[in-house]
Write a protein that binds this DNA or RNA. Sequence first.
DNA 1: TTGAAACATGAGTCAACATTCAGGTTCCGA
DNA 2: TCGGAACCTGAATGTTGACTCATGTTTCAA
Lengths: 214, 214
Amino acid sequence: MSQHSGSEVAEKTGPKTERGRRTLRKLLDAAGEEFGARGYHETAISSITQRAGVGLGTFYVYFKSKEEVFRALVADMGARTRHALSESVKDAPNRLEAERLGIRAYLEFVRTHKSLYRVVMEAQFVAPESYAEYYRVFAEAYRQGLAQAAKRGEISEGNDDVRVWALMGASTFLGLRYGVWDDDADVGAVSQAASDLMINGLAPRPKKNGDVSS
Amino acid sequence: MSQHSGSEVAEKTGPKTERGRRTLRKLLDAAGEEFGARGYHETAISSITQRAGVGLGTFYVYFKSKEEVFRALVADMGARTRHALSESVKDAPNRLEAERLGIRAYLEFVRTHKSLYRVVMEAQFVAPESYAEYYRVFAEAYRQGLAQAAKRGEISEGNDDVRVWALMGASTFLGLRYGVWDDDADVGAVSQAASDLMINGLAPRPKKNGDVSS
DNA sequence: TTGAAACATGAGTCAACATTCAGGTTCCGA
DNA sequence: TCGGAACCTGAATGTTGACTCATGTTTCAA
């Protein structure tokens, strides 16, 4: 856990000393790995503290409950994902290219953060508000990106809300299929094929001279 | 639960008498609703038997464990979804139209089966093999559909595996967003917008006379 | 009519944690 | 060098709930 959002941690303010910050980070990291590997309900607090190398009681110095760490983890994952994506897209020449880059970066990100990715998905059942928030924030930014691109004529007009959710769903499933389940597949090829679908759709390509039947 | 797949039920064969079949069905229905409303871990066997109107011990006459009902439910949901979709698509004139109809039918199906839909999603964590199987079967049929359509020239060529997962992801998320979370939205409009994206992509539409920049 | 297979029951068992707490230890400014 | 703030600890507590089992009740073929 490189960045902790503070707001989700213990009572009010975070740890006061360096030692405290180190312990918090150890707990957060350990929790991420345990939850990611075994799932929320299969994970015991004691296994988290053991992995972190601290006493059981220490956990409750930093978190009010098991659910609280979980929520903190989801929030952290959201921040990290958004950061990785905006970095990868920041110098795309246009929106279509941005989609391509975004997909690819997303798949790579999932592969290198499998544990936290799983945490986010499980949040749907463990902490539904965290899950909804994760996608709400995401969708909001995405929608604005599409709207602006449409204004610039880089993409067609359309129902951006629907588009955003469809695109997020596509990426999420591809992340699950090619990032989590099968990480041998060629990310480049997958993201190429995926962005091609998102950009051009399934419809047959018209011939060079615009000659389509009818 | 209208069709139970048998294979997931208790030891070997299902109930022998009419009374037994009725009880099994009551348990399955109750389990679906409880799991759907409260989630797997929050649901107690006793709440299932209570809702079904049978004694606690009766549950174990029909299922070896809590997980077993859950798996049976996922399998049942898979069969029902496939059935609903193939029905809705069976007389589509072409593949693109089939996509449109499929999306719409899927959204409607989700709305009328929210509980079981939630069960399927939670299966990812409770019974991962069931979840994988659910989508594996789905993907297989879908992929063949696309491949044949491509051969017929109704859609463009492409990486069908990637396409299938992207399309399933899109539908799933739209189902969550407009089927489970917000069931006031106009299904027609949503499925129209979604299928437009899947068919034509985001790319700007070329002008009538094929005049595109460059 | 009857007996055995099928079905039903719910009190009791038991293991698994989440969380608490009372009592340390370490750090640091004054 | 002292006092208190910050931090650490793990045994004990209490709850929860899946699953068992010994004992009925119902069904139905012979």
